[in-house]
Design a protein around this nucleic acid. Structure first.
Lengths: 146, 146
DNA sequence: TTATTAAAAGACAAAAAGGTCTTTTGGTAA
DNA sequence: TTACCAAAAGACCTTTTTGTCTTTTAATAA
């Protein structure tokens, strides 16, 4: 579905938001461990997210990552396109540059509604909405915790 | 959606089947040109498909690629898993190894039906069914032809 | 049986994705 | 103001994906 970087970013951000809800600011090692991602790679990804403005951080003792409380929710479609570019769910499954109802590839008819559902999903869900679900113990972030 | 190799394989096979319907056996250069894929890469991919048993070929004058008329249709799910492995649409969008209705990731509820639709699509459609659609001029294989 | 044609095989290489590690910078607290 | 802590920066590396090219093998037709 997503590439590794997007996947770690998504899990990482949801974990950070979840901890923020508990008044905590986790650091790279904690995040990496909890989302089961490579520590150095996780650090690099979180750095990029800070630079992109999706996330904030504090250095030094008691430092860590957190979301700016003043900012609106972050729909995961924005995260995905920041990391993977816009190509994600906009393209033709057959690889045609021009594929629409006027000039459809042979998969278009059946794939179009699926693509639409996918786009709806990633537009409606945000890092915050996902974190809320985990917070309410309805959903899980890793293999072990529920 | 798919990686490049799968994409070229899919377009290439549909093109070959389409030509077979017209009593023709295209070669690598023709296939590559028509599906707008890199010629050498296309050749290598077609070779692999022959070795996998999905396709047949003849060397020499009048040679080219063709489907064994005695063989059943090739569902594209088989093609995809032969090239990309089984991971394709079976996995969790969040990347959890264990993600199901008992232990769902926060995207599971909304993603599960989409995944199911995707699997239905690639199970029901075959190289042959797609070629038929193009043959009937209902659908297009490249940017130019209709 | 030779020339020609076209696929098969496999080495090679560029680019992208995924990942590691060291050094530097900027905070915090004693 | 020193010691320490944790993120920032960026060099470096590995693997996978994508792609190129040359040589060999097999089939056909004249």
């Amino acid at each position: 579905m997503f590439n590794k970087e997007t996947e770690y970013a998504l899990r990482g951000l949801v974990y950070i938001k979840l901890q923020n809800l508990k008044e905590r600011r986790p650091g790279t090692l904690e995040v990496a461990k909890e989302i089961e991602a490579p520590p150095f790679f996780t650090a690099k990804i979180l750095q990029r997210l800070v630079r992109s403005g999706f996330l904030r951080s504090l250095k030094g003792k008691g430092g860590g990552f957190f979301f700016d409380p003043g900012k609106p929710d972050l729909p995961i479609i924005n995260l995905i396109s920041a990391i993977e570019g816009d190509r994600s769910f906009s393209g033709c499954s057959f690889g045609l540059k021009q594929c629409d109802s006027d000039n459809p590839c042979p998969l278009h008819e059946k794939y179009a509604p699926i693509k639409e559902a996918l786009n709806k999903l990633i537009t409606e869900e945000s890092v915050q909405s996902l974190a809320e679900k985990v917070y309410k113990k309805e959903f899980s972030l890793n293999e072990f915790l529920k």
